[in-house]
Design a protein around this nucleic acid. Structure first.
Lengths: 340, 340
DNA sequence: GACTTTTACAGAACCGTTTCGACCAGCTTC
DNA sequence: GAAGCTGGTCGAAACGGTTCTGTAAAAGTC
């Protein structure tokens, strides 16, 4: 059986009895065409069920109308929400979004740089992961347009969309302090990450403002994953009762969940024995018991803005001003209570 | 400033002093090339930092090495996990995955059919959503390769990867019955969906086997969303105390969460007053209180298998045998207790 | 009515690859 | 020593579009 070939512009032109260029003008509405011929072409397109070949178009136009979205994992709802925001902005601009989960697939950043250079992708939105190497991001940004989300590289002015991590962190720490806590432990995010750094700075500011020496507050390093929350909570709590913190500030919700899990496993009542707070306000945060007090990040909006920024970067050849940091919001729920 | 153009094969050929075709042979390892010339070409590629233009390649090869992933939402972890499975299979095959969330972006199925026809996408994996119209899926499958996940169209033999919904449903219903429940209410998924249908069938089988008339068991229709779980739970429970069910079987975890939420809001103790079970075993299921008894679906594996099936469909021109239904597993946790 | 200007179209070049066919040298094979 | 391979190379024709250039007819000037 003869393989059926998709119709091309040539077929349409022949069917309508016009030239190739005329068909192109009609399809793209990019040239003057007399209305009778236009409708002849339109008819031919409909009859043949013609759809322009996008590879050929991209080749000619030097643009793939496609961007990449690099993120550490999808199972973390925060990333999923950012992704949805990006998807929406992209679809408004008739741009496709390709999903890149380097950790799950074992692809290196260099692989994505190649994608950029090969013009398969016009740009990428980069959601920083644990252990992102600055050199890789730079490599990436040398190969094409890149926008960072909730990440920033001190020293290199890379375009980024961020929320006010520091302020959000300060506010929730204040909230914990105002509830009366004086023995607080911190579970931080992965050290090299800007967001982790900012949140830590915010916590310390609040602590210092309350007259505590931030350097004496127990700090445990995590990686934004649930398991780390569990493990670091264990470390934080397995101390002499007198030294035991009455509140645990976690740098994101997932780690707070891990801490919650640990508490459940070891019979620690939350919030009566221990208060716990998170960061991000992922949808699940209001589902766990007790409902988690946390800081809302406008994940969807961040994604949307990041995509918009990327588009203007692509269109204007590298010129574009990032938006102001997005405000965060303290979400007071049930996981904080005064210490006993 | 002159726009800097990316180097092309021509540049490489000139630099290495060979013909275009030789460069192509080296790049693709698709023809005999003497080793000295080969290394000259390789050097030129490195020096010029050349990367082949993928649009041109796709044009010539008539394949974009890209597939689409159509799903209702990313925030539902079940979908996110399937997506990760697909991503992994795709990256193994050096294929890109583009994210399509029709509900969030307002694109119609026809839009995706266009993508298929324009050869921007070689195929798509379709995760069925509430209210998927059969006609749209058919439209899609006429335009190119399509694989369904956990969905099936009776009458049309579309390739699909599914798990054994019916058996999983039967088992969890059995579990509930064995705990001693006789007054059970069902909250089902969206009627037109195969998975919803299968689960319902499984529940009814178990009920019938236990000597109950399935037609007399209260049934409430939902749409797999949390809100529906809340609302339908309300309906199910706001009845005369004597008629009140002692167990609620929900067709997925999200709706079970909604039911849980309702119970919390209205002071019904779970599981002592009411047992609740779900379906899917999304990661959050073991995080809520009480930890949800549910049926595990191998989401990641489903995604992986779906992508593999799609690839063989694409390569073998439509011929490929779907895998057997994937087994499910009953996850007994804390949300079921004997009735009082 | 001779002139520019505009409008609608066709023709052809080009985008950056892949790949087929031609060619040639250097071998075997009878 | 003519015929047949085979490994290495190149030129040129696609692939399916976009867009620049040219041109004939229609329309607008005076």
């Amino acid at each position: 059986m003869a393989k059926k070939r998709r119709p091309t512009m040539k077929d349409v032109a022949a069917h309508a009895g016009v030239s190739l260029s005329t068909v192109s003008y009609v399809v793209n509405d990019s040239g003057p065409v007399a209305s009778d011929r236009r409708s002849r072409v339109l008819d031919a397109i409909r009859i043949l069920n013609y759809t322009p070949n996008e590879s050929a178009r991209s080749l000619k136009r030097r643009s793939a109308s496609t961007i990449g979205l690099i993120l550490p994992e999808l199972a973390n709802q925060y990333f999923a929400l950012v992704a949805e925001g990006i998807e929406r902005a992209a679809s408004d601009a008739d741009v496709l979004v390709v999903l890149c989960v380097p950790q799950a697939t074992g692809k290196s950043d260099d692989f994505y740089a190649q994608l950029l250079r090969s013009q398969r992708l016009d740009g990428v939105v980069y959601l920083s992961a644990t252990g992102t190497l600055p050199s890789l991001i730079l490599e990436l940004s040398r190969s094409g347009a890149v926008v960072l989300v909730d990440e920033q590289m001190p020293g290199f002015e890379l375009p980024a969309v961020v929320s006010d991590n520091r302020r959000g962190a300060r506010e929730i720490a204040q909230h914990v302090i105002e509830a009366g806590h004086r023995q607080i432990a911190l579970i931080g995010g992965p050290a090299p990450l800007w967001s982790a750094d900012q949140r830590l700075a915010g916590y310390r500011e609040a602590l210092a403002a309350a007259g505590q020496d931030p350097d004496e507050v127990p700090f445990f390093g995590g990686d934004y994953r649930q398991r780390a929350g569990y493990e670091q909570a264990a470390k934080a709590l397995e101390v002499a009762p007198a030294d035991r913190p009455t509140a645990l500030i976690c740098a994101n919700d997932l780690m707070a969940f891990g801490a919650l899990e640990y508490c459940r496993a070891s019979g620690i009542a939350v919030p009566s024995e221990l208060s716990i707070v998170g960061f991000d306000d992922i949808p699940t945060a209001s589902l766990v018991t007790p409902r988690l007090t946390t800081v809302r990040q406008p994940a969807h909006d961040l994604g949307f803005a990041a995509a918009r920024l990327l588009f203007s970067l692509i269109d204007d050849e590298g010129e574009a001003t990032p938006p102001m940091p997005f405000p965060t919001a303290l979400m007071v729920r049930d996981s904080v209570a005064p210490p006993r």
